[in-house]
Design a protein around this nucleic acid. Structure first.
Lengths: 214, 214
DNA sequence: TAGATTGTTAATCGATTAACAATC
DNA sequence: TAGATTGTTAATCGATTAACAATC
């Protein structure tokens, strides 16, 4: 009985549930109640039950939730039971680090290609991928049909590149550029990361530690 | 007449306002109305006026806001008019890339040191910093008094390291580890980045493009 | 002055929390 | 069965939007 439209607040909590359930499972937990989970995660039990019930009835009265089953269910909801082919655009410092650091296959993706414009970078290896020139992009897309893309290019290149990629069939963007990628095209998912905004927020919080009660 | 407690939703929008105002200024804008800004940013004019009025009266009836003045005001609110000394913990792929990629001084910080445990990394240069061994940490902190820290270490090391740093006087954490750093210690600011959760969210959105109206 | 746009109050909307009947 | 805990409805809280008097 999954709801037609899930609120953004709920969606943002799902990866965290998935993570905590994985840790619980690793620590030998078989069952957990919404109350116990709420204490571990710093949420209310009510909220947890409301969140899960957006997608179905995963618990059992008087018992709670089976940790392993619940984790698998949330994994399916998140699309982690499949791997969407993904490419990296911009293999500079940040792009390389992301490619090396992220466990793509456990996040629902499979990194199958990397591209750059810089002649000094083209041909270099990142993990088991060889960085290709951007001129190979359309041929590569036609052959390998990537559906997701990581943008680690300069701000000025972001919009045009995104449009090109959409024409090539890309439907999801993980955007690390300073450009606020708009979701103008229907049927395209965008996750703007904006590390700069994150650090700026930390500056605010640090400078307002005293005058905040929370 | 700044409010005592600013909601998290407002705080998260501030860096974005600051960014857009900078771009407007670069494009020669002198004044802007809340309506015009709302169209550019995809917000409502009401929300923008409410947000700004949490901190003071920055506009003028019949005119709007002076772009440059407003940007400076928001910059001050965000603490960007000073630079807090910051250190990097963990100078692997991700740490190095963050250090190279972020414009710290324009985000209210100054990167003054980098540390790692790995002998193969210690001594290497990142930008104009030489990576130090973690054994030098407490001496360095006593001498240089860093107030902020970037955590790019493995999950297992995060909690203990954070506690050590707090003892050394660190009051702000930019946390890239998989560990959910709690804000147990009063007077400590934490910004958890969680790139893995971000990518997982993208997986959800991609897999639910059809059944969502928004 | 007339027009424009703010600052701010009131109304609406949505998300979180509380409560409790259903049920394992 | 009795106790525990869910699923779900109702109440509360907070954030967003609308409206408008104040004023540049």
């Amino acid at each position: 009985m999954s709801k037609s439209s899930i609120s953004n607040s709920v969606i943002r909590r799902l990866p965290r549930y998935y993570r905590f359930l994985g840790e619980l499972e690793n620590n030998g937990y078989v069952r957990i109640s919404s109350r116990e989970l709420s204490e571990k995660m710093g949420l209310t039990a009510s909220q947890i039950r409301q969140d899960f019930n957006c997608f179905g009835e995963f618990g059992q009265q008087g018992y709670g939730y089976n940790v392993s089953d619940l984790r698998i269910e949330i994994g399916k909801i998140l699309g982690l039971d499949k791997q969407t082919p993904m490419i990296l655009l911009g293999a500079g410092n940040l792009g390389k680090a992301i490619a090396a650091h992220i466990d793509f296959r456990n996040k629902g993706f499979d990194l199958i290609g990397a591209f750059d414009v810089n002649e000094g970078i083209i041909g270099k290896e990142i993990g088991d991928l060889k960085v290709r020139g951007i001129d190979e992009l359309s041929t590569f897309c036609a052959e390998n049909k990537p559906v997701a893309a990581i943008l680690c290019v300069p701000m000025g290149a972001a919009e045009k590149l995104a449009n090109t990629l959409i024409e090539c069939g890309v439907k999801a963007f993980w955007n690390f550029t300073h450009y606020d990628l708009k979701v103008t095209h229907k049927g395209v998912a965008v996750e703007n990361v904006h590390l700069g905004d994150s650090l700026t927020t930390l500056s605010y919080c640090l400078n307002n530690l005293n005058n905040s009660e929370k």
